[in-house]
Design a protein around this nucleic acid. Structure first.
Length: 593
RNA sequence: GUCCCAGUGGCCUAAUGGAUAAGGCGGCAGAUUCCGGAUCUGCUGAUGCGGGUUCGAUUCCUGCCUGGGACGCCA
């Protein structure tokens, strides 16, 4: 459709220079394939829209280049254009089949380097479905960029330092039977305090399992709320960590890696992979955080408050803050998260200056503007943030530290066991591979279908629905296409170029082909706004049209051989586009469901 | 208090300022001698409230209401 629009645009441009032609699609296919609203033109040209439409029609009919235009209709200020159907269908199908897996890509990446940072969950527990939204959106963006030809490196920022992780470590030490006296003797927070590492032999950490972390984390947070001593112990741990206590450092790293391994195993099941794990603590050990602090000091905007904390004055950036400061250190000059984040982000920018994306929850919106301002002060162009809203529960918000969450893993397990049951119901057998693909497909679709900035209320029933607009519906449609080819016993011997597409005259066939042809523009708009839901919605629309076609237009039992071949080509093209969408969403095809 | 995001049938979701607001779930009524009924067909039913801009507003501006998020010592 794009190429037709372009040609029409060129043709009209010579007749109407300096006016922009806007194209839309008529609400009903019987009204045409392309439409030009003439109202804005009417205003600039000071003529009736209907007259303008007639004029445009005149120009179009006289241009031999526009032979593909079958007819035009003037409809209340809109000029509706009908494309020659056999030509249209042929163009669509041959384009899809010749480009195959690359169909829909405009290769805008051209091997340029890109970094996408996503997930970056605190390594304190198994991820809940809210965190999963970050990973799924991020992963889809990665897939879109790769589809467009970018050389993408996926980064995960491991927040392995800070109060919450120290809290978890403390909880782990207590849980693993670490003697309390050793902990209390550390309260002074002085370097050289007695050993309370958990990774050396004999003391706990090793036997802490990923599955236990959430309980430990919840328990210690509860305890801390009652006992102020806990916080003091936490700060001593942090002090020791920042000041190079290698055993403490080892304890942190062991615990954090237990968590990261557990988390990435879960995400890997969903097809989400990371290229680089960046450890936040390294920015302290390597001295980069300190170096950045020094750079900021050079700008003259770093101020020390009466308590001794260092904060960046951001008043010139007019951020909607109560006080325009970004606090970078505690009063003991240990770093706060923003400082480490700035140092880290600078690394990423140096590595991929042109395409640098970070996926962040909406709670980070203002914070990220502060980071961007700090980077700007240092002459760095901040990454492009992609924000998303939180997943809520019917009973309220999710909070890891309170323990009222739906874990992604539980969601995945429920979905897979439901898929297993459904398969047994239909085929009376077990098929673990298909069950996983179906269950995980349902999980991904359920999370990706809503636009990023919309709150999602998680509800088990609808999240686990395998009917209607769902992942399994998509896979089912594809399985049906595959099934037709399996039964046909022949793989398209005919050259798609030589098929007579004029036999595809049913409106359902033409609509299906046109829907398939809308894929490239869906990719463009998904990428433009970093919105996976556009792809999700698009592929659902395509499979929906296929289902209708499937019921009305028999392929294998078509009235004639010509029609049969043409329909086979059509569904082969549809299959290709569905597969390309699956590649973008990370949903696996299933042959037999 | 200030700032950001969202408000669409009973529930969930869609719609580059364009024509009759598109789907899913639920409910009701149907479809299988014929390529897979995880499907399809029909019915039911919606733009929070008030102004404004526009030939035209779910979309832009503005006031209010509701929900989510944020606003130097968490990350």
């Amino acid at each position: 459709m794009d190429q037709y629009r372009k040609k029409i645009e060129q043709s009209l441009a010579s007749a109407y220079p300096d006016t922009e032609i806007v194209f839309t699609e008529p609400p009903d296919p019987t009204m045409g394939d392309i439409s030009i609203p003439c109202f804005t033109l009417a205003k600039t040209l000071r003529r009736n829209p209907s007259v303008i439409a007639s004029d445009l029609a005149e120009v179009i009919s006289k241009d031999p280049e526009l032979h593909f235009v079958k007819k035009t209709e003037n409809s209340g200020g809109y000029l509706n254009i009908f494309i020659d159907k056999p030509l249209l269908v042929k163009d669509i199908i041959t384009a899809i089949l010749s480009q195959g897996p690359a169909y829909g890509s405009s290769s805008s990446g051209r091997s340029a380097r890109a970094i996408v940072e996503h997930t970056s969950i605190n390594p304190n527990a198994s991820p809940h479905v809210g965190r999963a939204r970050n990973a799924l959106i991020g992963d889809c963006i990665v897939r879109l960029l790769r589809f467009e030809g970018y050389e993408v490196e996926v980064h995960y920022f491991v927040n392995d330092i800070g109060k919450q992780i120290a809290m978890l470590l403390l909880g782990a030490m207590q849980k693993s039977g670490h003697p309390d006296p050793a902990i209390s003797s550390c309260r002074s927070g002085l370097p050289g305090s007695p050993d309370f590492s958990v990774n050396s032999e004999g003391s706990g950490g090793k036997n802490i399992r990923f599955e236990d972390l959430l309980d430990i984390y919840v328990a210690i947070n509860k305890k801390a709320a009652e006992d102020p001593d806990i916080e003091k112990q936490v700060f001593s741990l942090l002090y020791a960590l920042e000041n190079g206590d290698s055993q403490i450092r080892g304890s942190f790293r062991t615990l954090v890696n237990t968590c990261i391994d557990g988390q990435s195993a879960i995400f890997e099941k969903l097809g989400i992979k990371y290229d680089v794990f960046d450890y936040e603590s390294d920015y302290i050990y390597k001295g980069t955080a300190a170096a950045v602090l020094e750079m900021l000091r050079q700008t003259g905007k770093l101020e020390e408050d009466e308590e001794g904390r260092l904060a960046l004055n951001q008043s010139e950036y007019s951020l909607p803050l109560k006080a325009p400061y970004l606090v970078l250190t505690r009063k003991d000059k240990t770093s706060l998260y923003p400082l480490r984040d700035i140092a880290y982000t600078m690394d990423k920018i140096r590595s991929a200056p042109d395409m640098n994306i970070v996926v962040l929850g909406e709670d980070q919106k203002l914070y990220f503007r502060q980071i961007a301002a700090a980077l700007d002060l240092l002459g760095y162009k901040a990454p492009e943030p992609v924000h998303y809203s939180f997943v809520l529960l019917a009973e309220g918000k999710m909070a890891t530290r309170k323990g009222n969450v739906v874990l992604l893993e539980d969601f995945m397990n429920e979905a897979v066991s439901k898929a297993t049951a459904e398969i047994r119901k239909r085929r009376d057998c077990s098929d673990p591979a298909a069950a996983s693909a179906i269950g995980f497909g349902a999980v991904k679709y359920a999370i990706l279908r809503a636009s990023n900035d919309k709150n999602v209320t998680f509800d088990w029933d609808s999240a686990l629905s395998f009917e209607g607009e769902s992942g399994p519906y998509l896979q089912y449609s594809l399985a049906r296409i595959n099934s037709i080819f399996k039964r046909s016993g022949e793989v398209l011997q005919a050259d798609p170029e030589k098929i007579d597409y004029a036999v595809l005259s049913d409106p359902l066939e033409i609509e299906l082909a046109k829907e398939a042809a809308a894929f490239p523009s869906a990719v463009r708009s998904a990428l433009k706004s970093y919105s996976p839901h556009i792809i999700a919605g698009y592929v659902y629309g395509l499979t929906k049209k296929f289902s209708v076609f499937y019921h009305e237009c028999p392929v294998l039992n078509a009235e004639s051989d010509e029609l049969r071949m043409a329909r086979l080509c059509l569904i082969e093209a549809v299959r290709q586009v569905i597969l390309n969408c699956f590649g973008l969403l990370g949903i696996e095809p299933v042959d037999i469901m």
